[in-house]
Design a binder for these strands. Structure first.
Length: 340
DNA sequence: GAGTCGTGGCA
DNA sequence: TTGCCAAGACT
């Protein structure tokens, strides 16, 4: 969970996850669907699949591997995670190199090169090994990561309070210039139509196939690109089968996925199953309770919240209108109206 | 080696 | 509003 994700974000997911899957056996025995649903909203869903696969592998081999080399053979466990687990759980003297330590060491060595390059990486690992406490490698690794996160932070590093400022070459030259800024990628912008089809309090969802690159295996609201020659109804039928009609209600929701910036136009719509529906992706009608146990992305959850808010506002307006009408009808016939 | 994958916080 | 980035791994 902590891979590329901040601790603060992870904590609530971690606690709920551990309650649902208290040990490796329960995780291995659980359907992937359940694992994904507990991962909903955390992102990088491949991690959930790999964690599940790793649990299966651990149970099959009869226990956890205890060396960093063996750990790294498990799905989803790379150099960082293998070193972190091996050092913290099993006391192996291997250094971790996460984003924080990487930055700290680049500054310490005043390396003005891209730390992702393998040659630079080797140099950083060598330095990390030098600094590692062989008596307490787990604590030592955690201390380095904390130091990077809290003291040798990306902007405005607190060099004055740094316990490693002694041998730091970057401090003299201006720590902030190391490592060099990454090449930035251009953001791809797009507009999508998202359709909420309601039926007796349930919403129509489709399952993304497991080999999709993006959010594989998660449930999605029917979604189509905007600005096509086809009408929305045609696009929806082609993608999801059935027959569609689109209502007037629409809400705009913004969402960003790594290098993409999405404008989601959430529509209300209706869906009628036709002969072609069997050819579309797996579908389900899910009410609010059912949705709790489905794997939804944050993008879908956000769209649904926006839709529900809009519907509540519309209902409130309708209620006010109804009261006005009632009031008029209750007034004595032929009585003068306001302002006349 | 470079591209990709989600999301939320923050400046 | 926009861009950057985080306890990375995999293709």
């Amino acid at each position: 969970m902590l891979q590329q994700t901040q601790v603060k974000t992870v904590v609530p997911y971690y606690e709920a996850f551990m309650e649902r899957f208290p040990d490796v056996e329960s995780l291995a025995a659980a359907p992937l669907e359940d694992v994904l649903s507990r991962w909903s909203g955390l992102g990088y869903y491949r991690r959930a699949r790999q964690l599940h696969a790793a649990a299966v592998a651990v149970v099959e081999r009869g226990g956890f591997p205890t060396s960093s080399a063996e750990l790294e053979s498990l799905p989803g466990i790379g150099p960082y995670t293998a070193a972190a687990v091996a050092s913290m759980a099993f006391g192996e003297a291997v250094p971790v190199l996460d984003g924080n330590v990487e930055r700290l060491l680049c500054r310490r060595l005043a390396l003005a090169e891209d730390p992702k390059r393998s040659a630079v990486r080797r140099r950083l690992l060598q330095e990390a090994a030098q600094l590692l406490s062989l008596q307490r490698p787990g604590d030592s690794n955690q201390a380095m990561m904390e130091l990077g996160a809290l003291v040798c932070r990306p902007q405005q590093p607190a060099c004055d309070t740094c316990p490693l400022s002694q041998g730091c070459r970057g401090r003299e030259l201006g720590a902030e210039q190391f490592p060099p800024p990454r090449k930035r990628r251009n953001v791809e912008r797009s507009r999508l139509a998202v359709v909420v089809a309601e039926r007796q309090g349930s919403v129509l969802l489709f399952k993304r196939s497991s080999n999709e690159a993006l959010m594989a295996g998660l449930w999605e609201l029917p979604t189509i690109p905007l600005h096509t020659k086809e009408t929305m109804e045609q696009s929806l039928a082609a993608t999801y089968g059935g027959a569609w009609s689109i209502g007037s209600l629409e809400q705009v929701v913004r969402h960003s996925i790594t290098h993409r910036s999405l404008q989601l136009v959430v529509h209300r719509g209706t869906f009628t199953a036709g002969d072609s529906v069997a050819e579309g992706p797996e579908a389900t009608w899910a009410d609010a309770r059912a949705r709790e146990n489905l794997a939804l992305s944050s993008m879908v959850a956000k769209s649904l919240r926006s839709y529900e808010r809009a519907m509540q506002e519309r209902a409130a307006e309708a209620d006010v209108g109804l009261r006005r009408v009632k009031k008029l009808m209750e007034a004595p016939a032929g009585s003068p109206r306001n302002g006349r």
